[in-house]
């Protein structure tokens, strides 16, 4: 039996399908059409909403492979790996893509070893090589200084992760047809050495890796009080708040918000960097954003090299004006 078809690894939390799944459908649909095959969404969970399953089809899946079990409610590496392995051995997909999320970046390498697959992390471009039908996986490396195109000439499946927010979610199409196949986990070892004791949610609901917009502040703010402006601006822009390493080291913001080499890598639609000079370590975490705006008083700051729009000046003059301007707009819109 040949290896064929494109799979995306959909994600759910609490029985609800996550946005990353819809972004993966955009990528997967493109690849399946180019390669001429079926697009399957593989989903592991427990008591997943029927409407969410239908939505996966409406957004481009030809088939949803659903495996439900109590043991699959929350992600744990071993049972998730075992179930995925069973599905791969049964259906033999040619390509599997997952989100570069805390789940995807843990499960995919754990799984790739077991199925002897090639795996490429954090791809920004996925394509099919016309002559061979191989998956071409392009990813930034060395802090975004180079792009490497990687392929897996022989091993199957070809596996890759892509960053959240690096593509738009696939649009819903009314009347689109597909099948939902319920598979059983019976006979699969679902035991795990990892037990969830409890979950502690962030105080602020928005997290930077999943955000469409990020407003980030750095050294230029000088004090934690002034740094509050970043929060105010982010709220007005409906953006998540990010910080440079410096801002985190000064405790103006907590570590989960840190963008850069020793923090998170984000690929939002909009990244606004204020008072951030743009050290290479910071650029590594944000230069793949679609649109970048920089506000800095140093005209030579590196951040302007990666920006689409820049304002050179004192942030204490610029940010309050921007906040006031956005408030005006908000009022006018009401």
């Amino acid at each position: 039996m040949n290896w064929e078809g494109v799979w995306i690894l959909a994600e759910q939390r609490g029985g609800r399908v996550q946005r990353i799944s819809h972004e993966l459908l955009t990528r997967g649909r493109e690849l399946a059409d180019k390669r001429g095959g079926k697009l399957t969404a593989l989903l592991l969970g427990r008591a997943v909403e029927q409407a969410d399953l239908d939505e996966l089809i409406a957004r481009g899946a030809d088939r949803v492979l659903l495996v439900e079990d109590e043991a699959l409610e929350n992600f744990r590496p071993e049972p998730y790996m075992q179930v995925c392995r069973r599905m791969i051995e049964k259906y033999r997909p040619e390509i599997i893509i997952a989100g570069a999320t805390s789940l995807g970046r843990t499960l995919m390498p754990f799984l790739a070893v077991q199925v002897n697959a090639g795996l490429t992390a954090d791809c920004t471009i996925l394509d099919i090589e016309p002559e061979t039908g191989n998956l071409l996986q392009t990813r930034p490396a060395i802090g975004g200084n180079i792009l490497a195109t990687i392929k897996t000439p022989e091993a199957r499946p070809q596996m890759a992760t892509v960053r959240p927010q690096s593509t738009r979610p696939a649009a819903k199409q009314a009347g689109r047809r597909g099948e939902i196949v319920r598979e059983t986990a019976a006979g699969v070892d679902l035991s795990s050495g990892v037990a969830l004791v409890r979950f502690v949610g962030n105080e602020d609901a928005v997290n930077i890796s999943d955000a469409r917009k990020v407003v980030a502040g750095g050294h230029g703010f000088r004090t934690s009080e002034k740094f509050r402006m970043v929060y105010e601006l982010a709220e007005l822009m409906q953006a998540a708040v990010g910080g440079s390493r410096d801002a985190v080291d000064r405790a103006w913001i907590t570590y989960p918000h840190q963008v850069g080499l020793s923090g998170k890598t984000v690929t939002p639609g909009l990244y606004i960097a204020i008072g951030i000079s743009g050290a290479i370590q910071h650029l590594a975490g944000m230069q793949t954003a679609e649109t970048i705006v920089a506000i800095n008083n140093d005209p030579e700051a590196m951040i302007f090299n990666v920006a689409d729009f820049g304002i050179v000046g004192d942030l204490n003059e610029i940010v309050p004006r921007l906040i006031a301007r956005l408030k005006e707009r908000r009022k006018a819109a009401r």
């Binding site: 002897n116 697959a117 090639g118 795996l119 490429t120 071409l136 930034p140 975004g144 200084n145 180079i146 792009l147 490497a148 195109t149 990687i150 392929k151 897996t152 000439p153 022989e154 091993a155 970048i292 920089a294 005209p299 302007f304 090299n305 990666v306 920006a307 689409d308 729009f309 820049g310 304002i311 050179v312």
Partner: peptide, 19 residues
């Protein structure tokens, strides 16, 4: 299993409008 087939420099397509 994987092979690097090409290394290239990211295209700097950003035209910064600086004010």
């Amino acid at each position: 299993p994987t092979r690097v087939v090409k290394i290239h420099k990211p295209k700097v397509s950003r035209q910064c409008t600086k004010m």
